[in-house]
């Protein structure tokens, strides 16, 4: 185990703060999809860079945990490295790039391709937790809309999409109804990943540090992407396969190879891709 940072508590946050956050998490688990306000602390990483996810991870992580951190599906993107190092320094826990080995997976913008299992915890970094924010900027009003399940305005937006573009044009952070009750933003994952939220065996926790909200999808909970019966929810697809591992079912990144229109497609989930080639 590596030497941890002197002068700071295990996983940085003091135990009182961790308890406060764990209480918020418990409430969030008890009311799936409901945004629980919490006393978000000022972290040594910038707001918008995962402070919510980091606080959630810091509050639940123990010495026996194995942590994986991904950004855009990859373990070696700079912010993922930075967050993984933060926990290596402050908690000294084991880290991994392997989805199957991890007990906690903190993520920004993706859900791993490898199916999650019971006992694993996904921690999502959330920039804007409020699904109604673009329709109604006022917190006082959106709270009432949630309380009364007044979600018609979201369909009005989708109606407009179809009327003007022939299809729903939301591609990421695609709103879902959790457990037939609360409208929820799944964080800016591509809608491709929405189906992985539904009835997942893993516990899924969402932390928004700047906006001071935590919400959760407990294991085996129904998560339905909003749609119309005659315009059912559908996900991205590619004509290409991954140039490295040949996968035709994973989410692909487009990589520009020259300035003459040359491009190739590779798996966004680097661990998944590597596991198929090695």
């Amino acid at each position: 185990m590596t030497q941890t940072l002197a002068g700071y508590n295990f996983a940085y946050l003091d135990e009182q703060t961790k308890r406060m956050i764990r209480r918020a998490i418990l409430k969030a688990v008890a009311i799936p999809g409901y945004q629980v306000p919490f006393g978000s602390r000022e972290m040594p990483l910038p707001y918008g860079w995962g402070t919510g996810g980091i606080q959630v991870t810091a509050s639940i992580i123990g010495r026996a945990d194995v942590l994986k951190v991904i950004d855009q599906g990859a373990d070696d993107t700079t912010n993922a490295i930075s967050i993984r190092r933060f926990f290596a320094r402050t908690a000294g826990v084991a880290t991994t790039e392997r989805t199957v080995e991890a007990t906690i997976i903190q993520t920004r913008h993706r859900i791993p391709e490898t199916p999650l299992r019971a006992g694993q915890i996904m921690v999502y970094q959330v920039p804007i937790p409020e699904p109604l924010r673009w329709l109604e900027p006022r917190e006082t009003e959106t709270r009432t809309m949630h309380a009364l399940s007044e979600y018609g305005a979201m369909h009005v937006r989708f109606y407009e999409d179809i009327a003007h573009h022939g299809r729903i044009t939301t591609t990421y952070d695609y709103p879902v109804i959790v457990n037939d009750r609360y409208l929820m933003r799944p964080s800016p994952i591509p809608k491709f990943d929405n189906q992985k939220l539904d009835m997942s065996p893993a516990l899924q926790l969402f932390g928004a540090g700047r906006e001071k909200r935590i919400y959760a999808v407990p294991p085996f909970t129904k998560v339905k992407s909003l749609d119309f019966h005659d315009h059912p929810f559908s996900v991205e697809s590619w004509d290409a396969a991954c140039s490295l591992c040949g996968s035709t079912t994973s989410y692909l990144d487009e990589v520009l190879t020259d300035d003459q229109g040359g491009r190739m497609f590779v798996c966004s989930d680097t661990d998944y891709c590597r596991s198929r080639t090695s």
Binding site: E42, P46, Y47, G48, W49, T51, D71, Q72, G73, T77, N79, R108, H109, R110, P127, T169, T171, Y172, D173, P188, I189, P190, K191, F192, R210, E236, W238, Y251, L252, D253, E254, S268
Partner: peptide
């Protein structure tokens, strides 16, 4: 300004997964 600075500047973090969705659409 700590909140604002972080959130404005988080735009420089990679967003290529979501951007790919938008490209596709």
């Amino acid at each position: 300004n700590v909140e604002a600075s972080g959130f404005v500047q988080h735009l420089k973090l990679p967003h290529h997964v979501d951007f790919q969705s938008e490209l596709d659409l």
